[in-house]
């Protein structure tokens, strides 16, 4: 089981802020492929993955990063703080 969090327009497109899922994905990219295959709203959120950032257990990571042992994955647009 892994918690998947969504923020900003990624959250709006998918329609929920957080879900707990069971996955056999090895990498972040695998997880995204699983989600995209589920429903159109996921495909809409991940249509351009260059516009999406990922964090694993609250640390920035890459789509090629492995997710073994990770408890929390978050997807969001490029950050706009300050």
């Amino acid at each position: 089981m892994i918690d998947v969090l969504y923020f900003a327009w990624v959250r709006e497109r998918i329609g929920l802020p957080k879900e707990r899922i069971t996955t056999s994905a090895v990498t972040v990219a695998d997880l995204v492929a699983e989600l995209v295959a589920r429903e159109e709203r996921y495909a809409a959120a991940f249509a351009d993955t260059r516009a999406v950032r990922v964090a694993l257990d609250q640390e920035l990571a890459d789509f090629s990063s492995p997710i073994a042992g990770v408890r929390e994955v978050a997807f969001f647009p490029p950050m706009t703080g300050g």
């Binding site: 923020f7 647009p77 490029p78 950050m79 706009t80």
Partner: peptide
């Protein structure tokens, strides 16, 4: 600090105006 807070701290700005709402693009 300002440079890093802009693009490495997980905040997202959304602007609301008379024409609707829009996420601020990085």
């Amino acid at each position: 600090l300002m440079d890093y807070l802009k693009s490495r701290a997980p905040f997202w700005k959304k602007e609301f105006g008379p024409d609707g709402a829009e996420w601020v693009a990085a």
